[in-house]
Design a protein around this nucleic acid. Structure first.
Lengths: 122, 122
DNA sequence: GGAATGGTTAAGCATGGGCTTGAGTATTGC
DNA sequence: GCAATACTCAAGCCCATGCTTAACCATTCC
């Protein structure tokens, strides 16, 4: 499915553990491509591809000076995903609010709505 | 890479557009498996696999009564991802704070730190 | 200028995961 | 009991994507 929305590309970038580790590393400060590649048992080119994916969706930013490219975190990069999450949460809160209203309207003699257990392993 | 942490499974679930649409649908109220399968031009079995992925990482919950399985949103399902995002954001804020301190310490005669442009298309 | 360093790109392999098919199970309606 | 319904499971196809290899710039050092 070619859903090329913004959160789609951010999620596709974040779903890869290596890229999350790169973000982790960059959150402790800027680094060059070779510095980023070194800790991973991985080719230079592979790390570069990860960096391009991260930069394409606005999670990092990079700047080349001379022959050295330095990468750093883009501060607001995770904001679209954070917004998406809060948007998805609001309807649920609304549902809970309506549930609260319903509970308030009905008698207090049936307080077992919170009792539902989640079945862990089917 | 077999990184089976919680946010890993949540991200793997959310990265699929179909599963996000299913979440969207369920945020408007519970639905049976066949009700969920109907709008997608997709097999029953395929939707079922998506539902299993969503339930395995705690984003939805389902209950079978008779031969009908009803699915609903798990209210706190997105919380681990939201927490992960805020955790990643704090170091950046710290960096910005330190930047603010540095700017406060130095003279006000060099205000070009915010001037850096992001190069859109390489 | 030539070698070394740092990065970039393209081509190809290989695995994972989404989707289908097809068979199978449990429940409901007659 | 038998058929229809609603779902479940397993096997396999196929494509997207991560990774490697191998060549190819560009910059710095001598």
């Amino acid at each position: 499915m070619l859903n090329h929305s913004e959160i789609d590309s951010i999620l596709r970038a974040l779903v890869e553990p290596t890229r999350r580790q790169i973000l982790e590393r960059l959150s402790r400060g800027p680094a060059t491509v070779s510095q980023l590649a070194e800790p991973f048992g991985m080719t230079f080119a592979a790390v570069l591809q990860h960096l391009q994916a991260l930069e394409a969706c606005g999670l990092i930013r990079s700047e080349k000076i001379g022959r050295v490219r330095t990468c750093r975190i883009e501060p607001g990069g995770l904001a679209p995903l954070a917004d998406w999450i809060t948007e998805r949460r609001i309807p649920v809160e609304r549902h809970l609010d309506r549930l609260g209203e319903i509970l308030a309207e009905t008698d207090q003699s049936s307080p077992k709505v919170q009792d539902q257990e989640k079945d862990d392993q089917p």
